[in-house]
Amino acid sequence: MADKKPILTIKNLYKSFGALKATDDVSLDLYEGEIHALIGPNGAGKSTLIKQISGDYQSDSGSIHFLDQDLAGLGVAERARAGLGRTFQVSSLALEFSALRNVMLAVQSKSGSSFKFFKSVQKDADLIEPAMQMLKEVGLEGRADIPAAELSHGERRQLEVAIALALKPKAFLLDEPMAGLGPAGSKNLTGFLDQLRHQAPILLVEHDMDAVFALADRISVLVYGRIIAAGTVDEIRGNPLVREAYLGEEAS
């Protein structure tokens, strides 16, 4: 992998909330075609880090480069347009809109300006067809017309993925996509993400260790805002620091 250029490079990133160092000198990168998993106990700062990358939080210091572009100063929307496709830890959808219209919003953003005032979106095949295609990819085409508020928890997670797909991102930021899915749902999504890495690399925050070990090319372990270990699945499994800090009984 050394000959490839990373898609996403994070260098010496810091973020404090008062006395709490939520992100403490974090560096990591994401290469084409890989799934890089970010694991760590609750409160380790995984979500803070994701929010620094997505643009919700501005970093205190350090740099984030994405496709050779410095992301400093860019807002959430600009970073999304630059090609960061993101799913939320807790589903974040336009709840009154149907599943289809949620995806159409992403297609609309991808296809250019939203300052188009006259043509009705309800009949706009340029929006509807690609959106429907994305729903099919996640297996939600039968629920296209259901308002997001009426979808089940699992369906909402699928919808989040469909929206991220519709953005045709250059990298995915997936914040606990398995959260709250049953075993069958997790297994399905694991298979799906396994393929997805060929479309764009994935920075995956996940608590489901079966999924992480099945999917990840590399793992970074975050504890109290610091990366205490990084490496392949086997290296992380064998790392005594990680066992102690995080995996505990689970890994034995």
């Binding site: 999304a80 974040s92 959808l93 709840l95 609309q108 953003s109 929206i163």
Partner: peptide, 10 residues
């Protein structure tokens, strides 16, 4: 949901 709207790049 303005968080959602930002996340799709608008």
């Amino acid at each position: 949901n303005d968080e959602r709207l930002s996340a799709v790049g608008i």
